[in-house]
Computed example of a mutant assay.
Amino acid sequence: MREEGVPDTVDDRLAARLGTLRTEHGWSLDELSRRAGVSRSTLSRLERGELSPTTATLGRLCTVYGRTMSRLLMEVEAEPPRLVPAARQPVWRDEEAGFVRRSVSPPHPGLRAEVVESTLDAGAGIAYADAPVPGVEQHVWVLEGTLGITVDDALHTLREGDCLRFRLRGPSHFHCPGPERVRYALMIVLP
């Protein structure tokens, strides 16, 4: 049974958390807009739950707030259990970008690592303007398909079974050249 006034979907809880983060920082919508490069009206609609953020927008907000996307999404979930059955792993979709993200091992404030499973449709790409947490370590393991990753101005092409490890300090870009979608595991280790 849903308690009155308590958001009940991930999108509702995410909208509420984004509003709380802005308030905690003491920023107006105009100030956040300037820092994140996202329009004031879009930010307002996101915080009211009228709009679901795109991956790019959420990435910009995570950078401004100094959080990984997983950490932000974890903050809108209940305390994660030790065992997370596949059917209960939180899934977030950006249909417009052709991106699906499953938190296989939801992050926890006391832990530094997490595992995420992602898929990108053929031809889709996700660009992150900056590292959400400078120096975060990432391991990308391709499970199916082909994935192009640009990090530190170098393009890496990974095929099924390949793994790339790097520390992220700036922009990055993930792209699926096709012809099929790519499915990959991302291991994130906070510095």
Rank of each mutant, 00 (worst) to 15 (best):
T63R: 10
G37W: 10
V38T: 13
A78M: 13
R40L: 03
S41A: 09
R40I: 00
P81R: 15
G59H: 10
A56Y: 09
R45L: 13
P53M: 04
P81I: 07
S52F: 00
A56H: 13
S44G: 12
P53S: 07
V38M: 12
G49P: 06
L72C: 05
M74C: 15
E79K: 15
R60P: 09
R67K: 13
L46I: 02
S52G: 12
E77S: 14
M69E: 03
T57P: 10
R45D: 08
E47H: 01
R71E: 15
L61M: 01
S52A: 11
L61H: 00
E50A: 02
P81M: 09
A56T: 15
P53I: 04
L61Q: 00
E50W: 02
S70M: 07
E77Y: 14
M74R: 15
S41Y: 02
L58A: 09
P81F: 02
T57E: 08
T57S: 08
R48W: 01
G37P: 13
G66M: 14
L61A: 00
P53D: 06
T42N: 09
S44L: 05
T63C: 04
A56C: 05
A78L: 15
E75H: 06
T68Q: 05
M74T: 13
V76I: 10
L51Q: 13
R48C: 03
G37L: 11
S70A: 09
A56P: 03
E79S: 15
S44E: 04
M74Y: 06
L51T: 14
L73Y: 01
Y65W: 11
S41M: 07
T55P: 08
R67Y: 12
G59D: 05
L72I: 07
V64D: 03
L58D: 12
P81A: 14
V76S: 02
C62W: 11
L73F: 02
T55L: 11
V38A: 10
T54D: 09
S52N: 10
V38R: 12
T55I: 14
S70H: 02
V64H: 06
E50V: 06
Y65C: 05
L61R: 01
T42I: 06
S39A: 10
C62H: 12
S52E: 07
E50I: 02
S39Q: 11
S39G: 12
G37H: 11
T42M: 14
L43A: 01
L43T: 02
R71F: 06
T63P: 05
L61V: 00
